[in-house]
Design a protein around this nucleic acid. Sequence first.
DNA 1: GTGAAAGCGCTAACAG
DNA 2: CTGTTAGCGCTTTCAC
Lengths: 347, 347
Amino acid sequence: MKKARAAAAPAQTTVYDLAEKAGVSAMTVSRALSGNGYVAKATRARVLAAAEEMGYFPNIAAKGLKRTRTHVLGMLVNELHSPYLAQIVSAVSLATRRHRMDLFIGLTAHDPDDDSPPAIKHMLSGLCDGLLLALPRSRQLIETVERSGLPAVLLDYSRSGTTLDIVRGDNHDSAKAAVDHLLSLGHRRIAFIAGTSHTGQSPERQRGYLDSLKAAGLAGDPALIVQGGFDQAQAFERTRQLLALSVPPTAVFAASDEMAFGAMDAVRTLGLRVPDDVSIVGYDDIPPSMHTQPGLTTVRQSTTEIAEAAVRLLLQRIDDPVPAAAPIEFASQLVIRGSTGPSPSPG
Amino acid sequence: MKKARAAAAPAQTTVYDLAEKAGVSAMTVSRALSGNGYVAKATRARVLAAAEEMGYFPNIAAKGLKRTRTHVLGMLVNELHSPYLAQIVSAVSLATRRHRMDLFIGLTAHDPDDDSPPAIKHMLSGLCDGLLLALPRSRQLIETVERSGLPAVLLDYSRSGTTLDIVRGDNHDSAKAAVDHLLSLGHRRIAFIAGTSHTGQSPERQRGYLDSLKAAGLAGDPALIVQGGFDQAQAFERTRQLLALSVPPTAVFAASDEMAFGAMDAVRTLGLRVPDDVSIVGYDDIPPSMHTQPGLTTVRQSTTEIAEAAVRLLLQRIDDPVPAAAPIEFASQLVIRGSTGPSPSPG
DNA sequence: GTGAAAGCGCTAACAG
DNA sequence: CTGTTAGCGCTTTCAC
């Protein structure tokens, strides 16, 4: 038996406390609680009762030290204000549970600009078995994870040059489909509001936009491509400017729903109507998009599938750490609602 | 020096590896990295270089075992779809960083219905120094934390019967102010859309609503109080029903912005206008609320102050575990935008 | 300034 | 079925 614990700290109950209470060894307690190995029914019951009574919680730290699995996955996210990210996090949380693992989420947005951000430091510190990076914005973050050797999967990353596995929603093809839809409605001057390019998603969507125009034999007008920074207010301003052009666009494709909301606001602020005067398409299909007036035509990503695949892949890599395979990409789906209609000036 | 590590695992770098590389003892490595105790400048530099080169990350688990602080706070949240919760989480993350701590977030929404939810199990397992429970919905969760003895603070909890500290935004007074505002605009039939009552916030807001009516000498009509479950679609339906009453309300006060959005949709679906025919007030002031047409009149909670106070209080309790004091409550602020206007049928 | 020893809570690996 | 021993990576305590 161990010596008495120091009086100071609010004494967390340990296996030794339980062992004493149940009149067995610590090892038996461990076995009884984990369900591994043989323990007599009665002994087990006594241990469980003691654990219940004393409010015992196994110390994951000590567990992890034994190099056995912690059964915890870590997830790093820049911030949570984006509803799309909230969806991804939620889907990953659910998928994690389905695989009987736990999930810890860390935010990187508020990390100091020092070398390696604290959030990841702890994630990499032997706490979790593997790491999910959702929409990673920083190359440095990715490199740090690569160097750590911890199994990791990137979610919705569309750039090259990483040695990590990637699971993502399609960007190019669905963006092309969105613009094809606008073209089929007779639109010819179609603007694109880009987001930031950190994750490579917005550039891919822009590529889809350009390819659609090209396939229709249209030379894209550079004046119709503006930077919205994935920010609603900024998209609002850019749209106002777009509509002030001598030949304004009749449709706007925004690289995110939130920017599309900003665009809709701008259209209305100028006394115009959606979709009568200007059609609007977004990207992500976040929950509010079905509630706007009119509903927002947008691209829905398969967050559930992306999350499930990412977790499954990560668990595979944890079991068998082989080099990354090619990115896994899920098709996205164009959801047509009321914000798109025939061009007011066809052809 | 330690024996060679097993070949199998993707060998995490340890202080012993660093010690060998830098030609010093593990203890010196520890000192050099932590900054505690005396280490020669040159030695320190060598150790830091080795750490950098080998991609070293201290193992938080081993650190925690020594019962010293882990410098990690845990935060438990039911889900993240609510923008208000995202705000709170973000604010807490920022506050945590300001106090040079890290934050791990766990979701409880997908926990199985067993006894103690997994997320909390790990949080309670000696991993973090203290716990923040944001809008805790489950009494059982709170009780589990209470019994664990881990320092903990509840955020935005407005019920009684817990022994834990509470930091929250005011609900009653600001709700009363919101309804006072409607009364001052001449409204007399004012509906209330309640949320769920888990955290006690909605009931408090309802109390403020009732007190406002009472102070104005009005007997509240029970038919004007409906349950929206903090859900936009549900609030939409309830509002349609409210407006179908023989004497419909001229104003609707919803216990959350999202429910207010549902109410606005319902008003417009019936061919009525906001605020000309029906005034709408929400609660929380989430980001989209300033972008609706018209902007939503709502109550802004001081998330930054709440988060900062909660973190500070938690750190105090970690340093000095004394019983909880009275709840700390921050005033909330009525933000008047375009969704409220004079009653079409003044009193 | 630096090192050696011990132990945090837990669980493999071996007895018995 | 149960107990003993040892050690995970780190840091506290004490020596030098």
